[in-house]
């Protein structure tokens, strides 16, 4: 079991290192980090000022098909799917690819002061959340579980930062011995 963390069109070694450390503690799996540069101008909606995440995922899938294991893309762009005004991330349910946007996880987006700890916690939660979907988990009703749905930033902050016992059991029982 391998997880690849891929920064797309930006680099932040400190963030990747910290994220890798935290994810290893929680998931106990091997984690590799990569950087990718791709042109997403055709996925940009000038009307919205956002990028269409499903298209970005598809484009990255074509470019990363040889990479073994789960692949979580980190982007700085604000992303959307057509029906919704924005999303924090998107994942293939039971698939290998997921994307997490950092744009709306930054405290500055909400006119709050820069806070690297809060920002990091949010990224960690959203990466675990989307990875959970890759592993076949649905949204969980437990607010202490990272798989609780979060449709605004307050809910990201409120939910827990690890999988609840039930979600861990589902992963262990039905998918693979991850933990």
């Amino acid at each position: 079991m391998k997880l690849n963390l891929i920064t797309v069109n930006f680099s932040n070694d400190a963030l990747l290192e910290k994220l890798t450390g935290s994810l290893k503690k929680i998931l106990n799996i091997s984690i590799n980090t990569h950087q990718l540069k791709l042109d997403f101008s055709d996925s940009y909606s000038s009307e919205r000022g956002q990028y269409y995440s499903t298209e970005i995922l598809l484009k990255c899938k074509k470019n990363l098909s040889v990479l073994e294991g789960y692949k979580i893309l980190l982007v700085e762009m604000d992303i959307y799917v057509p029906a919704l005004t924005y999303i924090f991330g998107e994942a293939e349910l039971n698939g290998e690819f997921a994307i997490v946007s950092l744009a709306r996880l930054k405290p500055e987006f909400y006119m709050n002061p820069t806070d690297s700890e809060v920002f990091f916690k949010r990224i960690l939660k959203e990466v675990l959340h989307e990875f959970g979907h890759n592993l076949g988990l649905y949204h969980c009703i437990d607010w202490d579980c990272v798989m609780h749905s979060s449709n605004n930033i307050d809910e990201v902050d409120l939910k827990g930062s690890d999988y609840c016992r039930n979600c861990r059991q589902i992963i262990n029982r039905d998918i693979v011995k991850v933990f």
């Binding site: 499903t54 799917v81 057509p82 029906a83 919704l84 999303i87 998107e90 994942a91 349910l93 979907h133 649905y138 949204h139 749905s149």
Partner: peptide, 17 residues
Amino acid sequence: DEKIVRDSLTHWFQESG
């Protein structure tokens, strides 16, 4: 009638089970 709207909403609801 728009496929991308159907697909994105379907996927979004599926994530919630």
